[in-house]
Every structure is written in structure tokens, then in C-alpha cells.
Design a binder for these strands. Structure first.
Length: 649
RNA sequence: GUUCUUGUAGCUCAGUGGUAGAGCACUCCCUUGGUAAGGGAGAGGUCGUCAGUUCAAUCCUGACCAAGAACUCCA
């Protein structure tokens, strides 16, 4: 057989040859330096037989980062071996340590264990030392193909491995990878020897994970590690984690007094503090203005509704797990509102509609309640009571595309206003489990096709994800990545043929007959809670002037300047700006420091010079540090600030 | 919801089987200053809740509550 090298040369090899054999043919030095290979663009190791005719490249110790998934996977095995040795050294039998899966992941690896006693994070240094010892032993990592019987015999003590092996197809060879006396069932690929593995790794945390991800299975202890080709990359990664911690909206929410969650009020039920309320109201005002320009009409609906309403909509049946239990009053049952749509449908149905009336766009900042699992709750980003920037557009089928594109346009504008450029568009369609969805296939097919067509037309990059649809229709979600790479769903647009049918709503067409409208559900922010949470992290608490809960602080240099500062403060306040005076007895340096820590964007320092000229000395926070302007006329500054506030620039 | 970890002053955190401490914040006094911390004094805690072990529990044990991480889930 033969393979092709990167320069296009053909290399003839004996049948069953590996990438290492190929490297040896090319030169002994390359064979020594080689760590991994790619075959037809896919990463593989040096021990796996090559398929004939493939294009191969060799990855050497010059650029080990190209083989990161391999060394991360191998380090997972080293961790697994180290944990085994650790428990044996403490008197446990070798068979007492059982293992689940242990793959490479983004930035590192993990390994699941079933241990005779839990491993604590205090023991990580000892485990890491053992791992480094295994690296220094420079053990060869070897690959072997075995039969199923042999595989089962090898791991007879480990029910997890037995289950995995039993599930493997008979036809394919089962592979073992070994290093020293450690053997693991593994598909590979791996580095050729432990000595070649980078030592830039760190065990990060331990947690539990269900065996095979199923909540009805036993839990295993999962140990996470991160690993990089060099120490520098590892340090940078750890620094990014620190940065994420600094930007964490729960921490900033406390420091900047934006919101609090009080167990006495209830978990997942955030209380908006005055500063956070300013943020929220600015966002609301912004979107209301946009919606007014786009001919939306505001409506208001109650926070609970009759159970029959949700039975008609299907929310009661389809989401029984995540609804709050119904309340019984006077022989009737009510439920906390999990969605605004049914209410808006009833508003549509409150009078006859003509085709001339459509589209009808009903908007509400509607508060809904969903019983999220307690383990899911997270600051503002996952809560049990939240307010959606919801609207429902009822339109004729021929208006659907225009309306959908208009909503898309609004959403893109919203995201752009906050500089959220790294957004992913996700089209959620049905998957095979059809009983999860209501409505006819024809309606679904039409709606799915229309979303994909519209998104494609705007030229947005998107992915189609089966199973991500709502029960009543397909949807387009906007997903943003945060500083540490976690993805959060922001807004959503959904096309719905089903609720109109379930509620039997209609409009009178040109022909005088009744027709069924189509509904678009949309929420550009998603929810104000989650959006504010993400916004806090997005800006790291450094909000632009229009959003900053505290916009301006006046800093008198000495007490005799307090009256002047208060006069200016009152004038700014009358103009609608959020201004305050720091009249504490601290020195001016300390006041500046305090304002910096509070992330107040504009500081106005006033002393004798300023007072004389009715001026201020301006210190502004900028991403690059701060900017100072001295002797600015107060009247001019006020106009400038107002202009910036009103234009949201 | 499950597993693990954590819970001490408003905040960040030390600490001990004999009922507690620091820094910041707060109050008062002195200081009146020019772009990131002036000095002093004071006040503030059922050591998450409830049981148990003990002569004695904030500390040990258990349950519960809450938070964090991960898993599962997410209209």
C-alpha cells in the first residue's frame, strides 16, 4: 500500500504500517521527533495502522499544540493511572478503582471514577505529583487489538468497562492502550510515550456525573484537568478564568448593588436593587422606543391564568415538570403564567379581525414563572421568575416573511447596540420524537423552511439543530459566548401555526371567509434578567453612560466647594442625568478611588479654580484607563453629557 | 432533581472543644486636600437552622436550609 506526504510524494509501505513506520522510512530523526499524525485531515496517532492511499502529515515536537486533543486524552490516561496507583498505595485493591469514560475536552480532559472513597481536591497535589512521575518514567504507550472475550476478561472487575465492551459491535476490533502496567479500553488516539506529554497541566476540580449521562444511573466522581502544549498557554488560560471570575455577574451584582437573591423571598427570585432597576428600565425604554417605531402595541396581562387556558395552549400538558403547581380557588384552578402567548392570543380573539387589521403586533414586558430545577438556578441568568420582552405578531401567511425579516432586523439592531458581535444563530427544528410536538407536519415543514429561507436571505451564518424546536413551532435563537466560552441563549424568534389552530383564531379575508393567521413569537433580549446578567459580564460592570446606574459623581476638593457641587448636581438631575455629590470628609484622591471602584463613568472635580469660572474638571473612565479635561465650562459639559445620554453613544 | 464542596460582622476572609478576630464599609472627632487609600476613636456577630455527642460545641456527628461546581434539564 502507499500514502501521500504533504509535498505530494508517494510513499510505499507494507500492509498494516503505521504513521511511525512512515516516519522511520523518511528518517530516523523524524521518527524520534514525531508525536502524532493527521490522516486525510483527521488527527490520529503513530500506532494506528494507516489506510491505503491517504494523505498524511506528521506532527512533531516542534508544534505539539496541533495534537492537543491527543495529549489531553493521553494525560487523561495518566490521571487514571495515577489515581489507580494512589489508591493502591493507600492499601486498596487494584480492582477497587473502577473507571467510566475519560475523553479529551476543550482545554483539557476529564476522567470518571467509581472510587472506594471519594477523592478530595486537597489530594490533587499528590495526584499531580504522581502524574509527573509517570511522565518522567517515559513509558511507551502501546496499542493492541483484542477480541471481545479477552477484553471482557481483562475488565471483569469493572462493571462500567464490561458494559461498554458488551455494547461494542462484534465485527470491529476492540483496542487497548497501555502504558507500563496500566491498560485501558480505548479507541485512541494517543501520544507515543508519556515522556513526550507536556507537563503544563493542572487538575481543576472534581464533581459528579451520571454514568452515561443518564440521571437514573449511579453517579461517578469526575476529575477535571486542563492541559496545554506549554506553560505559557496554561498560564494564559488560568488568567482568563480569573478574568471571568472578576466579571462574574453575581459578584459584580453584589459589588455594584444591582440585584440580590434572598432565601426568605425564594430561590431563583431575584430582587432588583435601585442600581439594577435603572439598568433594567433603560433597557425597557430603549426597546419600547424601537417597538413604537415599528408599530407594536403594548398590552398588559395578569401573572396567573385559568388552567383551562394552558390546557388549550398545551403548555400545561407539555411542560408539566417546569410549571409551578396549580392553585385551587373556588373550584377553579389557576396557574402561574409560564408563557405570555396564550394571554396574547385571547387579546387577539377579543374582537373580530379583518385582513386589513393585520399584522397585529402585541408587545408586553411580561413576567412569567417556571419551576426550574434547583440545581439549574444561577444568578440572573437562570431564575424561576423573569420578565420577557415578549411580543406576538399575528399576520397573514403572505406577510410572514416580511414580518420575520423585520423582527430579525430589530434583533440585529438590538445586539449591535450592545456591541454583541460574536453571536451564533441557531435554527431549532423538530427531531424524530414527534409526539413531543403539536400540529400538522405540513405546518411544521412550512414554518421550518420559511425560517431557514429568511435567515439565509439576510446572509447570517447559522446552524440547524434538530430537537431544539419549541413544542408548538420551530425557532431561531441567538446565542452568545461569554468570556470563558459558555454559551447563553439570548433572544428568540419563533414561527407558530399551531397555537392559532388550538385557539381557533381567525381573520376575515378579502373573500369574506375566515382565515387562520400565523403567529410570530419574539423576544430580542430573551428575558430582562438573563440579558442584564449577560450584559454585566459583557461590559465587566463598565456600562456605557446611558446604561450606567450612577452616571456622574461630583467631587468637591474641600468642604467649602460642597455648595457649588450640590448646585451643579441639582442642575444635572433636573436635566435627567443621574448625578451625585461625594461630600464625605475623605481626601479627593480617596473620592476618585471610590468612584473608580464603583465604575462611575464621569467624575467632575470642583475646587476654587472651577468654582470661579463656573467650570468643572472632568475625569472619565475609558477602556484604556482614564481621560482628564480641565477647566471645562459646566454648561457645555451638561449639553455634551445629555447628548451622549440621549443618543446612547 | 442528583453528587461533591462551602456557610464566621454589611463585604472579603482569618481562627479555636472553654461562647470570637483582621482589612474594607459604617458612626463620631481631627484633617481641607488637585486626579486610585490622611490620622484617631467607636459601634457592629445566637459563628446558616435544628437536633445529638460532651462537664463544655462556632469547632465533632446527623438532618434541614442556602450558595458554588458538575451532571441532567431549559417554552
Amino acid at each position: 500500500m502507499h500514502v501521500f506526504l504533504p509535498d505530494g510524494k508517494r510513499l510505499d509501505l507494507p500492509e498494516g504500517a503505521t504513521a511511525l513506520d512512515a516516519a522511520k522510512m523518511i528518517g530516523p530523526r523524524l521518527a524520534q521527533d514525531a508525536l502524532a499524525a493527521t490522516v486525510g485531515g483527521e488527527l490520529t496517532d503513530l500506532m494506528t495502522p494507516l489506510p491505503g492511499g491517504a494523505a498524511i502529515t506528521l506532527i512533531t515536537k516542534k508544534n505539539p499544540g496541533d495534537a492537543a486533543p491527543l495529549f489531553r486524552h493521553s494525560l487523561g490516561h495518566v490521571l487514571s493511572q495515577a489515581v489507580g496507583e494512589y489508591y493502591v498505595a493507600r492499601g486498596f485493591a487494584h480492582e477497587a478503582v473502577k473507571r467510566g469514560v475519560g475523553p479529551a475536552i476543550e482545554n483539557g480532559f476529564y476522567q470518571d471514577f467509581d472510587l472506594p472513597q471519594p477523592l478530595s481536591e486537597e489530594e490533587f497535589p499528590a495526584i499531580e505529583a504522581l502524574m509527573r512521575d509517570i511522565l518522567s518514567r517515559n513509558l511507551d504507550i502501546t496499542r493492541a487489538e483484542v477480541g471481545k472475550d479477552r477484553a471482557l476478561a481483562q475488565f471483569s472487575y469493572d462493571p462500567y468497562k464490561v458494559e461498554l465492551i458488551a455494547a461494542l459491535p462484534d465485527a470491529e476490533p476492540i483496542t487497548f492502550y497501555s502504558q507500563g502496567d496500566y491498560v485501558d479500553l480505548c479507541r485512541g488516539p494517543h501520544f507515543p510515550r508519556t515522556g513526550a506529554l507536556p507537563s503544563a497541566f493542572k487538575l481543576m476540580s472534581t464533581s459528579s456525573a451520571y454514568w452515561r449521562g443518564d440521571a437514573s444511573n449511579p453517579t461517578l466522581q469526575r476529575v477535571y484537568g486542563v492541559a496545554f502544549a506549554g506553560q505559557k498557554e496554561l498560564d494564559e488560560y488560568l488568567e482568563r478564568l480569573e478574568e471571568a471570575k472578576r466579571r462574574d455577574h453575581r459578584r459584580l451584582g453584589k459589588e455594584l448593588e444591582l440585584f440580590t437573591i434572598d432565601p426568605l423571598v425564594g430561590k431563583g427570585l431575584p430582587l432588583w436593587l435601585p442600581n439594577g432597576t435603572v439598568l433594567r428600565e433603560e433597557l425597557t425604554r430603549f426597546l419600547r422606543e424601537q417597538q413604537f417605531q415599528r408599530y407594536y402595541q403594548g398590552v398588559i396581562t395578569p401573572n396567573i391564568g385559568n388552567l383551562e387556558l394552558y390546557k388549550t395552549s398545551g403548555h400545561y400538558q407539555n411542560y408539566s415538570d417546569s410549571n409551578f403547581s396549580p392553585i385551587t380557588v373556588d373550584d377553579e384552578q389557576y396557574m402561574l403564567k409560564p408563557m405570555n402567548c396564550p394571554h396574547h392570543v385571547r387579546i387577539y380573539a377579543s374582537k373580530p379581525r379583518s385582513y386589513r387589521d393585520l399584522p397585529v403586533r402585541l408587545a408586553e414586558f411580561g413576567t412569567v414563572y417556571r419551576y426550574e430545577q434547583s440545581g439549574e438556578l444561577n444568578g440572573l441568568t437562570r431564575v424561576r421568575g423573569f420578565t420577557q420582552d415578549d411580543a406576538h405578531i399575528f399576520c397573514r401567511p403572505d406577510q410572514l416573511k416580511t414580518e420575520f425579516l423585520a423582527v430579525l432586523d430589530l434583533t440585529v439592531l438590538v445586539l449591535g447596540t450592545f456591541g454583541m458581535t460574536d453571536v451564533r444563530f441557531r435554527v431549532g427544528v423538530r427531531d424524530a420524537s414527534k409526539d413531543k410536538y403539536v400540529g400538522s407536519d405540513a405546518n411544521w415543514d412550512a414554518a421550518e423552511a420559511q425560517i431557514i429561507e429568511a435567515v439565509g436571505e439576510v446572509g447570517l451564518p447559522f446552524t440547524v439543530e434538530p430537537g431544539d424546536a419549541a413544542f408548538y413551532g420551530p425557532k431561531l435563537d441567538f446565542v452568545i459566548k461569554d468570556v470563558i466560552g459558555r454559551e447563553w441563549q439570548l433572544g428568540t424568534i419563533q414561527v407558530d401555526y399551531n397555537l392559532p389552530e388550538r385557539f381557533d383564531i381567525s381573520y376575515v379575508g378579502e373573500d369574506g371567509a375566515d382565515h387562520r393567521p400565523v403567529m410570530i413569537h419574539r423576544a430580542p433580549f430573551g428575558s430582562l434578567e438573563r440579558f442584564v446578567g449577560i450584559l454585566i459580564e459583557h461590559y465587566g460592570g463598565d456600562f456605557p453612560l446611558w446604561l450606567a446606574p450612577r452616571q456622574v459623581v461630583l467631587i468637591p476638593i474641600a468642604d467649602r466647594h460642597n455648595a457649588y457641587a450640590e448646585e451643579l448636581q441639582a442642575e444635572l438631575h433636573r436635566a435627567g442625568l443621574r448625578a451625585e455629590v461625594d461630600d464625605s470628609s475623605s481626601r479627593m484622591n480617596a473620592k476618585v478611588r471610590q468612584a473608580e471602584l464603583s465604575k462611575i463613568p464621569v467624575m467632575l472635580i470642583v475646587g476654587d479654580k472651577e468654582q470661579e469660572e463656573r467650570a468643572v474638571s472632568v475625569r472619565e473612565r475609558t477602556p484604556e484607563g482614564h481621560k482628564e479635561r480641565k477647566g471645562v465650562q459646566f454648561a457645555e459639559l451638561k449639553t455634551e453629557l445629555l447628548e451622549r445620554y440621549q443618543t446612547r453613544s
